[in-house]
Design a protein around this nucleic acid. Sequence first.
DNA 1: GTCTATATACAGATAGAC
DNA 2: GTCTATCTGTATATAGAC
Lengths: 203, 203
Amino acid sequence: MTRIQDKRVRLVDAAKALFHTCGFHLTTLADIAQEANVPLGNVYYYFKTKESLAEAVLVKRSRELHEALQAWEQGETVKDRLLAYVQYEIDNVEQTVQSGCPIGSLCQELAKQGGSLADGAAKLLNDTLLWVEHQFQSMGMGHDSHELAEQFVAAIQGNALLTHTFKDPKILEKLKPTLSAWIDKVASSKNVSMQREKVEEYA
Amino acid sequence: MTRIQDKRVRLVDAAKALFHTCGFHLTTLADIAQEANVPLGNVYYYFKTKESLAEAVLVKRSRELHEALQAWEQGETVKDRLLAYVQYEIDNVEQTVQSGCPIGSLCQELAKQGGSLADGAAKLLNDTLLWVEHQFQSMGMGHDSHELAEQFVAAIQGNALLTHTFKDPKILEKLKPTLSAWIDKVASSKNVSMQREKVEEYA
DNA sequence: GTCTATATACAGATAGAC
DNA sequence: GTCTATCTGTATATAGAC
């Protein structure tokens, strides 16, 4: 790409990192410009407002999320896929210890002020939720899939908050065996009723 | 109390509400002063800095939390007590829809900047966690109590985040039967091993 | 396209009359 | 104790030379 795109990319990357570590409101455009090695006045050539820069960050986070979802989707069994998601959180646990879940903290901070930023952050969490729900459907959980997905994502988000608040990576790490056992239990309890319900096709 | 205390109380109440609905950084002292019907310049007679006002808010939240814990403690069985906590969240679900869990959102926002505010917010969540852990100990869950408490609190915090993000009170409302069944399952699975473990005294 | 200098707005905090 | 007026710093955003 051209040099102009490089600067734009650098600004979005710097903003993405700083919004996560310091939060949206505490991060100044001067901080972002410095981190990206771009003079402050030049930022406005690429982004008219701080909000439009934040929107670009949300677009980038969305692209990265869907790449991750695709990667986890490669797992052989549904359980493998769901645990790949959990493992991803564990691989990035130091980030979560320092600044919380990147998506969860965006939702918490941006949901309060409404507007397009709140919607964009909510969509990240919703896309995650829909993917998990799809996994449970592939498992044959039918109508329960939505609530199971909510419990799964809530468990990860809740444990990420505890991890961040108490600066303790072990909290997230312990979650993997816990969720693994929970998936088994959920699946086995469903197998009983599978005798009378049609098993859904894997998508 | 004297009139001077009234103003102080009004400022703390206004700050408590606004920090929750708008977040700490987005709330200005002018907003707080207006909400409390106190002239801006007079705020500094009671609180030298915005941070010291936030500390007073944390003290108030801590007092209120411990009052709530005592109220829930009146439940007859351990399950009643834990579900009283969940019911409390449901009773205040509209607040959570609008602004998230008061304690969880404080932790998320203040943990990033460290300092005494981060510690104060973390203590609120930790006190909650310790109370839940104590309940599980009273149930005879022994060494598992800590991790059960983490899962319990994480479930509530995670569901509060989803409730806030998706503006959907039903998410938190559905949690009560889910956790109720979970408590039963946990208790019954422990009853098996109670035959070989000493049952701990209720505190 | 780039970057310095600056306008504008508003935040936290203070001075000092009452 | 109270409150107006204001200081000071800093954030977003713009103007305009290069």
